[in-house]
Design a protein around this nucleic acid. Structure first.
Lengths: 185, 185
DNA sequence: TCCTCCATACCAACCAGTCTGTTTTGTAGT
DNA sequence: ACTACAAAACAGACTGGTTGGTATGGAGGA
């Protein structure tokens, strides 16, 4: 069972960094130091099954990660900014995207594979739910909270894209600064 | 010269829909009804050269497109909403993304090819410039205008991503509705 | 003896890119 | 206006490498 988790762990990172099509099976095998037989033992349906497992794994990790941050701070504003701050740190340290995003996977696979599209959809929904709940707890109407939560998700996702193209964490920083202006009924 | 433009035209659409790695040369050739020799005659350096040509072509098309919309409407708010409205229409009609975005290409290629990353960066910068200029003309300070322009770009980019995963134009609609709340000094 | 787990050899399909040869086209000479 | 010729444009076969996926067999514990 350990091997399976190892595969998921490493493959998740690779998929996030290079996208689904950008990572070959052999690359994954080498990174994990396992053989093809082992991989296909744990994921008989192959690469796509592995991807979905990775997405589910990300789902749990990202969710608990964000939830923890959101428990630590009282207001959504503080929590959001702390969260983006963490993203900025990660980006500046590793110079690549390692969390909270799967745009590459979405844009590659959304039109190709329904199961993958669905897994991504679940992930976004869950994250938005965290934002939304906190906003409702602060007194926002459910509808407004959902709208703002969507804006947070979208702008972070797009912001990461801009950071990638500009090789700079500036876009996320600006977003972190501007976003709170939306937190009004 | 006609063939070259044809190739760029068709390849641009394919790249937008499926990403760089998602489109094979043979697929492009078939879609254009041309031969490999012809393609490599116009793009001696191969696929990546073609991609960059496509990005430049998108640059011009998208830029003039947005500029026209922004001339038609007096306020940035109206213009932005009209622009997003057009995106929504496109998405609902074709059920795929056809303009104003190249996230798939960015996320796939940003870390792999400097020239491509640069072409993408130019594109984003140019689009943001249009937003920013209009905002400055409305009286915003340059810094605020840049921040808001960045937020527009990021949220639209992320919004398209959400539309793709949810197979719905709702995210963009909500963004169009919420975005104007940012238009304050 | 099974069954889980892993390793390896192998496969057809496809990839981007090269090479050679043919057609088309523009141009200069008479 | 007709020919001659070179360059541009195109066609298609071919290559080496890689892709995801399969089939077979072995090691080790229950």
């Amino acid at each position: 069972m350990n091997t399976k988790l190892l595969i998921i762990d490493i493959a998740t990172t690779l998929f996030q960094q290079k996208g689904y099509l950008g990572v070959g099976l052999n690359e994954i095998l080498k990174a994990c130091n396992i053989s093809k037989g082992s991989l296909y033992h744990h994921f008989p349906k192959g690469k796509e099954e592995l991807l979905i497992a990775c997405l589910q794994s990300m789902n749990e990790e990202v969710t608990t990660d964000i939830e923890e941050i959101f428990k630590q701070y009282q207001t959504t504003q503080e929590a959001t900014q702390a969260m983006i701050g963490k993203l900025v740190e990660d980006f500046e340290r590793e110079d690549t995207i390692a969390g909270y995003t799967f745009s590459s996977i979405v844009s590659e696979m959304a039109s190709l594979s329904e199961p993958v599209r669905n897994a991504c959809s679940l992930l976004y929904t869950k994250i938005q739910g965290i934002y939304s709940n906190k906003l409702v707890a602060e007194g926002f109407s459910k509808e407004t909270a959902n709208s703002i939560a969507l804006m947070i998700t979208a702008s972070i996702e797009g912001g990461l894209m801009l950071c990638l193209t500009q090789k700079s964490s500036n876009p996320l920083k600006i977003i972190s600064h501007v976003l709170p202006n939306l937190f009004k009924e």
